[in-house]
């Protein structure tokens, strides 16, 4: 085992109205890798991700960021190290892409020190990386679903954090846009050495883009590991109750699920 991961969940338990959602869940989010959390509907994927991002307070257990409980650290200081894009976020009408991306600088600013050279640089870089620079002055509602999602990712990038969490970033996107978005996330991970953890529904996309997969079932970890270790016939049957064949993706060599 190497140095401990910067983001680590320790014996998390969460319940909503006495229904347990997460049960004593412990996991590492490996540094500099893309981790994808998969599992059937209602297995607690989103709750797990939200707990990692301190948006959900666990009933017991804790999330450690850089060795300290995330809930005991100043929210602003956490926001300088960890960004999360919640599921289907909403923005007020008339907000332009640049306005939105600028809000990503909030944790680096204060009411008294609102704009600096670094802020301008980070916003410009985020717009470039996501290819949103040409659309910077357009309002969000004038964009397509794929562009809008890129704008939100640009906001999270402008936050300039080493850790980026994404809750189902491909929801409502068609397949080409899903691939485009995940390729963008992959290139961010490779170029900036950013740690990424995200929830994805599509197990084949997870297998293709993940370095590390966490498979949840009924609020607990079923198994973790590389795509080849996790995406097996036996695991799929137990996690998703899905009878399937696994073939090797002819283009990328990653495992590919063919439901029976």
């Amino acid at each position: 085992m190497n140095a401990p991961a910067r983001l680590h969940a320790k014996a998390l338990s969460v319940a909503f109205a006495k229904t347990p959602i997460l049960k004593d869940l412990s996991a590492d989010i490996p540094d500099g890798k893309i981790t994808v959390i998969v599992g059937p509907n209602a297995c607690g994927k989103s709750t797990f991700l939200r707990s990692l991002a301190r948006l959900q307070k666990p009933d017991s257990g804790e999330v450690l960021l850089d060795g300290k409980s995330i809930h005991k650290q100043a929210n602003r200081s956490v926001a300088q190290r960890l960004a999360i894009l919640p599921q289907s976020p909403s923005a007020p009408e008339g907000l332009t892409v640049r306005d939105l991306v600028t809000r990503g600088r909030t944790p680096h600013q204060s009411a008294l020190r609102q704009w600096s050279h670094q802020d301008a640089e980070a916003v410009g870089r985020a717009l470039e990386l996501t290819g949103m620079a040409p659309n910077a002055n357009r309002p969000l509602e004038a964009l397509s679903g794929g562009q809008r999602q890129r704008a939100w990712i640009a906001m999270a990038l402008a936050q300039d954090t080493k850790i980026l969490l994404l809750d189902e970033p491909t929801t409502y996107l068609d397949l080409p846009h899903q691939i485009e978005l995940l390729s963008l996330i992959q290139s961010l991970n490779q170029q900036n050495n950013q740690t990424v953890a995200m929830v994805l529904h599509d197990i084949n996309l997870a297998a293709r883009f993940a370095d590390h997969i966490i498979a949840l079932r009924a609020g607990a970890i079923f198994t973790t590991g590389s795509p080849t270790e996790v995406v097996t016939r036996n695991n799929m049957e137990q996690v998703f109750e899905l009878r399937c064949q696994i073939i090797s993706d002819p283009v990328h060599g990653t495992p590919h699920v063919i439901p029976e």
């Binding site: 948006l55 960890l82 976020p89 909030t106 009411a111 936050q159």
Partner: peptide
């Protein structure tokens, strides 16, 4: 004046505001 700065983050929704470091 202080609130107007905070509300710029708050108008993106509570989750986003919190993840941007706002209390």
């Amino acid at each position: 004046a202080v609130s107007s700065f905070n509300l710029n983050a708050m108008m993106l929704g509570e989750d986003t505001a919190r993840s941007l470091g706002l209390r």
